[in-house]
Amino acid sequence: MEPEGSAPAPPIFRAVASSTRPLYQLLKAINFTNKVHIDITENGLRFAADHARVMQGVAHWSKSLFTTYTTNIPSGPAQDSTSAEDSEKEDEPLPPTFQISLPALLETLQIFGAADAAARQAKADADPYRSNLRNYRSDAFSNHTLGMSGTCSLSYAQEGEPFSIVLDESGVSTTCNLTTYVPETPDDIPFDIEDLSFKIITSARWLLDALTELAPTSPEKLTIAASKREPYLRLTSSGGPLGSSSVDFDKGRDLLETFSVRQRWVQTFKFDIIKSASEAMRIASKVSLRGDGQGVLSMQFMVEVEGSGPSFLDFRFVPYAVCEDEGEEDEEDEGEEGAEMET
């Protein structure tokens, strides 16, 4: 792409953060794919990960996570000259979008603290008393704990350029250029907010606990049922070799902060895809579960980030087609007959 003038144009995006920890935490929650889509907007970065079109995870890096945040989003024609005939779109700036390798980005954000770790190791070597017992514990005065782990500046010059991350820490500067890929622009999984069947807000920890209860039988499927009467919210695992389990949430005792069910909603999902949201459940404080008329499940997690407002993680899941449930019941019946033979 030709530069617009003799002087280099300001980069599309440039931001500086003093701590990579919240950035890393948020991204790690959607770490279930190789490539992640990044949209750059005025208010922050949006990361969208997609798994086989049945699961979608979106993380936001809000502007408030950075000490400086500047964007120079080009107007329509500059970004895409072929769409010149689209006169309406000329006025609306299209957010720059591209794909990037998520594992590589996560790796990069982890470089921070490397010098810290080296310093700690040196200290441990010098002091044999704390040798192997304590060096896993972070020091109360380490840069990491104090949140002064240097600076991290992110920039994206223009379309086709690498996404560049420069980490400065105690005199050591690390520059990482991550290759950007042409976006696939997948549509979001459709979720109809107008046609909600239920909405439940609860502590994310309870949801994680429930999944932990269900996981040991290594189930294949997870059925989520929300109803007005008991059981209000029930998660059932099935298809595992060691039996089946279910977890019920009682309506009382402040367990469910918000509970509104318009109609009984039962959908079955692949257990593993719901489980890939467990990192989000771990770091989030609250979760909002919503199901729409088509059976799509939306989980929104509220993550409290120190020093800035809450961040949100958004997951959407597509359920199994209903006809598969019958096959599963057949299997169950067979299992029952087998058990009776034994008795």
């Binding site: 309870w206 209860e213 269900l214 039996g243 279910s246 009682d250 009382g252 005792r253």
Partner: peptide
């Protein structure tokens, strides 16, 4: 104690 009930059925 928080009101969650988990039931496991094992063959």
């Amino acid at each position: 104690r928080n009101g969650i009930t988990a039931s496991h059925s094992l063959p």
